[in-house]
Every structure is written in C-alpha cells, then in structure tokens.
Amino acid sequence: MTSETFRIGGERTVRRLGFGAMQLPTAPGPVREASVAVARRAVELGVTLIDTAHLYGWGANEELLAEALHPYPDDLLIATKVGVAPPDPPRDAEICGRPDFLREQVEQGLRRLRVDRLELLQLHRIDPAVPLADQVGTLGELRAEGKIAHIGLSEVTVAELEEARRIVDIASVQNRYNMLDREHEAVLDACAAAGIAFLPWRPVLPAVSHASAGIAAVAAELGATQAQVALAWLLHRSPVMLPIPGTATIGHLEENVAAADLRLSEDQLRRLDRPGPR
C-alpha cells in the first residue's frame, strides 16, 4: 500500500492528493464568496497542498487564497508559479524567464500570498530565449535569500530536468499526465528515481470526458465516479505522484478528496493499465 503523504524536497510533508485552485472564480460578489468557501473546505477536508500561479488571474488567484486561508495552517503548503508575462496589447501573454522578471513576480507572489517565503515556487514554463542556467539560477539565488524554500519546474523534458538539476535542487515537476495521456511517462519515471514530486496537471481529463467502457466498469464495481477512479489510479501509479484536481464547487471537491480512500484491486489495475481503448 502506497503512502498517503510525500515529503517535498525531502523536508515538507504533504498529503499526496492536493487541490488545484486555477478554476476558482475571483470576481467580486457571490462567486468569489463561493470560491473562498471551496478553498476553506479543502483545508477542512485535510488537503495540505494547494497549487496556484501568477498566471491565474494575473495574481488574483493568489490574492483569493490569501483572503480565504491566511493566516495559513502550519501544515498547509501553497505552491505557486512564475514565468509568464501578462498581455500588453497588442502583445499577447508570453513566456518570460528573464531574471529581473522572475524576481519581480516572486516579490509579487510574496505580497499577494502575504508570506515571507514561498514554500514551493515553480517555473511555469522554460523560456527558450533565456539560458536555463539564468532562469533556475535566479530561483536558486532567491532561495539563498530566503524567499523560496523549494524550486520546481513545469512542462519539462527529461533532458531539461537533468540540466536544471545540475544547477539547483529541483523538488517538483508539474507536467500534463493522466490515465489516458501518458506522454510524460519518462519524466515521471525520472522524478520517481530522484525522489522528486510529480504534480500532474489535468489529472482527470480526458478519462471522464471520453467514452471509456473500462473506466466506467471499474467505477461501477466500486460505486465510485470515473473521476475518482482516475485519481485513485494516479495515486497508485507512483509514490511521487501528487494529483492536484481543481473545481469550483464543494460537492465536486469532496468527491475528489474521497478518491484518496478508493482502493483498486490488482485485477482492476491490470484492466486500467491495458493498452488501447479502456
């Protein structure tokens, strides 16, 4: 039986099933109040890892989490991401890994989240126009200054992960991965070998959006939803896997969190792992 917790960077223990805050509306009024309630309910349910990013509302998502949860419980880790510049018409939003830009976004994240140190700061995307050593090196400098505890990457290859690890310690990788989309299998395996947390984004889709007789059958056998089966499969796939499903409703949040208690039999796992249509 795999552990229900993971130590990010070998130091910070979190429950492996987290929460992705990207879908939470931040506009004033009842929708914002509902978002605050969802964030607070996640913590009540025992979630200790919440994922956000500067990109999500250009800081508005970080501010929402601070409004909902600050002062933060001692066991709660809020991970955020930097490295995407907001649109400035006629220029669209774009990846930006310039050291001065990354520093400024980190400072903004500290202010918006109302903290002195970001416990997990992830580079949202590698900027191909800036040497990787300059990008992760800047994050390493910020860590040395006490503004970052752990450094992560997002949407990287095995080669990029290896290159980054020669410059700084990498605590997490956030790549797209789910039961029906395993493009980054090699990256997951590299993370498992190195003890690096792997946070799959889009952890449920397309398992619940595409017709899947196999997943539906296992869900029916367990009295669970297809989304719960998809999350349970991820938790079983690797001990470094930390899914961060997102939602804007308390009911769906409770359903997702309950997936941590779902147990798949060896026969069910074999059927779900079978190549081809499931």
Rank of each mutant, 00 (worst) to 15 (best):
M1A: 13
T5M: 02
T5Q: 08
F6P: 01
R16T: 01
L17G: 03
G20T: 00
T26L: 09
T26Q: 09
T26R: 07
G29L: 02
V36E: 08
V36K: 12
V38F: 09
A39R: 10
A42N: 01
V43N: 03
L45K: 07
G46N: 03
V47S: 02
T48S: 13
L49S: 00
L49D: 00
I50H: 02
I50V: 13
T52M: 08
T52C: 09
T52W: 07
T52A: 08
A53S: 12
L55F: 14
L55K: 15
Y56E: 04
Y56W: 05
G57Y: 02
G59Q: 09
N61C: 11
L65W: 05
A66Y: 01
H70E: 10
H70M: 08
P71N: 09
P73N: 08
P73A: 12
P73G: 09
D74W: 03
A79T: 10
A79C: 13
V82I: 15
D92A: 15
C96T: 09
G97N: 01
P99A: 05
D100F: 07
L102P: 02
L110W: 04
R111G: 12
R112W: 02
R112E: 01
L113D: 11
R114K: 15
V115P: 00
V115W: 03
V115F: 06
V115N: 04
D116V: 10
L121Y: 10
L121S: 07
R125P: 05
I126N: 02
V130I: 13
A133Y: 02
D134Q: 15
Q135F: 00
Q135D: 01
G140D: 04
A144W: 00
H150K: 10
H150F: 12
G152E: 02
G152L: 06
L153D: 07
E155S: 15
T157H: 02
E160I: 00
L161W: 03
A164N: 00
I167N: 01
Y177N: 04
M179H: 12
L180V: 04
L180W: 03
H184R: 13
A186T: 11
C191E: 00
A192L: 09
A197Q: 00
F198M: 05
L199S: 11
R202A: 11
L205D: 15
P206T: 09
A207V: 12
H210D: 11
H210Q: 14
A211I: 11
S212D: 15
A213N: 13
G214I: 05
A216K: 12
A217L: 01
A217K: 07
G223F: 00
A224L: 13
T225Y: 06
V229D: 07
A230Y: 05
A232Y: 04
L234F: 08
L235K: 06
L235Q: 10
H236N: 15
R237W: 10
P239V: 08
P239R: 12
M241Y: 10
P243H: 09
H252T: 11
L253S: 06
E255R: 14
V257G: 03
A258R: 10
D261P: 05
L264E: 08
E266K: 14
E266M: 12
E266F: 04
E266A: 15
D267Y: 11
Q268K: 04
L269C: 04
R270G: 13
R271N: 03
L272I: 02
D273G: 05
R274L: 14
P275D: 03
G276R: 08
R278F: 11
